[in-house]
């Protein structure tokens, strides 16, 4: 029992790194995704082409490769980042690319009659977007956003490959040291608990937004 507690304590320390990366990624990639989605449906051709390239690149290559490139590749160009910086930048850019496409699709799924009604009432583009279109789009993008939020928990385990002491790496160290697989099981339970929290939060959000249909 005390072995289990010890291991759990050790894993929870690693879990802090997981949670920090998780928080940073969510806090920055969602607003970035919203901004990129709005830019992608704007009339600025250059911006649209650039964002098209961005989402193509980041959705089209493995996250692990992007992480390697940022941490091991960028120093070649004289840019040296700490493990934490490299992980945060890569995760934010990667997840923002997916959020951009999710939010763009959500915004474009809103009926054009909504834009016309807002316009006929004298609202300008900004007012229409913030007050009429985006609030409705939020409801539609909740399920795919929830999926990403769950995937992100598990993707954070990738940072072990650039030597960060996250939960998975901690578990592996314990298993290698003690020749017992219980650390893996404990890690799995902690990951499950974390995803359960995310699932619960999104379920509540969906309930909140379901009042009007």
């Amino acid at each position: 029992m005390s072995y289990t507690l010890n291991v759990t304590g050790f894993l929870l320390k690693g879990c802090i790194i997981t949670l920090q990366l998780y928080a940073v990624t969510i806090v920055f990639s969602i607003p970035l995704g919203i901004i990129c989605a709005l830019a992608k449906i704007s009339r600025y051709k250059f911006l649209k082409a650039f964002l098209e390239f961005y989402t193509w690149l980041f959705r089209g290559t493995p996250l692990l490769l992007q992480l390697f490139f940022t941490y091991y590749g960028l120093p070649v160009f004289g840019i040296r980042l700490t493990q934490e910086q490299a992980a945060a930048i890569t995760f934010v850019l990667n997840y923002a690319a997916y959020f951009t496409e999710i939010f763009r699709a959500g915004i474009q799924s809103i009926d054009k009659g909504q834009y016309e009604a807002a316009k006929a009432l004298g609202m300008n583009y900004r007012q229409t977007m913030w007050r009429i279109i985006l609030p409705q789009a939020v409801k539609r993008v909740l399920p795919p956003t929830g999926n990403e939020a769950i995937t992100l928990i598990k993707d954070t385990a990738l940072v072990a490959t650039i030597g960060m002491g996250d939960m998975l790496r901690a578990a592996k160290e314990v298993v290698t040291r003690d020749f017992k697989i219980s650390a893996f099981i404990i890690a799995a339970v902690i990951y499950l608990l974390l995803t359960t929290v995310v699932v619960y939060v999104f379920k509540k959000l969906e309930e909140k937004y379901s009042v009007y249909d």
Binding site: G113, P135, D213
Partner: peptide, 12 residues
Amino acid sequence: GMVFQSFNLFPH
């Protein structure tokens, strides 16, 4: 003021 065939009320 305009009134549309499909109402276009704001559902939210």
